[in-house]
């Protein structure tokens, strides 16, 4: 049943905070850039087939935390992680982890749409090809299914060989979602996926998130509190690297426990 926030003029779309099994669990988890601690001692559990939003002012460590989940931070030479982070019960930072399999288990969508300068088909087929799927029929089916799940199929089904850069910004972002879905992930990590898009394209992405929540665990980092309130079941608020508050979105936006959370969502800073 939709309810209203006393702070935000927004209708909660997320209704379901009923607990499901835990998909991602952080326990005393920290990320360092050299000596700087970007994420400090975070502990939280994200639930299967729920949308979890991570909010907070710029530089609060929310993107760092998201990118730590699929070990994208490995690309930064000075970056290291400490503490526990488990995905489906498996320790992400264990030396035994198959990073490639881990990343394929988790699709990622970035701030700016970043399709490769290749054809639409090749973009979507990139992940499966990395995994070693080269059979034409299987690829075709996978590409079609992924584009359908990303609600892009009707628009591009006749121009799969076109360069992906010819699509509009919103289409490009949905193509990136399709590309991420093609590896058949269990989790979708979205790093401010609508910040470069206009309101109409944003709405389509949000609709898409609403559809995908039935099959996927989604973690979305966003600047936009209305968006967090609209699309997420759970919300985590980060401030200066600390996880200040985490709970069902309805609770965070209607009766936050912490002073800082309230100050942030009412727009007093950030």
């Amino acid at each position: 049943m939709p309810s209203a926030s006393p702070f935000l003029n927004v209708a909660f779309r997320a209704h379901d905070a009923a607990p499901t099994p835990v998909q991602i669990a952080a326990c005393g988890f920290s990320v360092f850039y050299g000596a700087h601690e970007a994420v400090r001692n975070a502990t939280l559990a994200m639930h299967t087939r729920k949308v979890t939003a991570i909010i907070g002012p710029s530089g609060c460590g929310k993107s760092t935390f998201l990118r730590a989940i699929n070990r994208m931070n490995d690309l930064i030479p000075t970056c290291r992680a400490a503490g526990g982070l488990q995905v489906e019960g498996h320790d992400v930072y264990s030396p035994m982890t198959d990073v490639v399999a881990l990343r394929q288990r988790m699709g990622m969508v970035f701030q700016k749409p970043n399709p490769f300068p290749k054809s639409i088909y090749d973009n979507v087929a990139y992940g499966p090809r990395v995994r070693g799927t080269t059979r034409r029929g299987a690829l075709d089916a996978l590409v079609q299914r992924s584009l359908e799940r990303a609600a892009l199929w009707p628009e591009v089904k006749d121009r799969l060989r076109d360069n992906a850069l010819r699509l509009s910004g919103g289409q490009q972002q949905r193509l990136c979602i399709a590309r991420a879905l093609a590896t058949e992930p269990h989790v979708l990590l979205m790093d401010e996926p609508t910040s470069a898009l206009d309101p109409r394209a944003t709405a389509r992405i949000e609709d898409l998130i609403d559809t995908l929540r039935a099959t996927l665990t989604i973690v979305i980092v966003t600047h936009n509190m209305q968006q967090a309130a609209r699309v997420s079941d759970y919300t985590a608020f980060f401030y200066e690297g600390l996880l200040v508050e985490y709970g069902p979105t309805i609770d965070i936006f209607s009766r936050p426990r912490e002073q800082q959370t309230e100050a942030y969502i009412t727009g007093r800073f950030g």
């Binding site: 490639v100 394929q104 699709g107 990622m108 970043n114 490769f116 990139y126 990395v130």
Partner: peptide, 24 residues
């Protein structure tokens, strides 16, 4: 972002460079 996208799809740094960065 090309490199990041490729890595996030499970490509090794090698494959990311050869399949996306070099063609671009």
């Amino acid at each position: 972002t090309y490199r990041e996208a490729a890595i996030s799809l499970g490509a090794t740094p090698w494959y990311a460079v050869i399949s996306t960065v070099v063609p671009a």
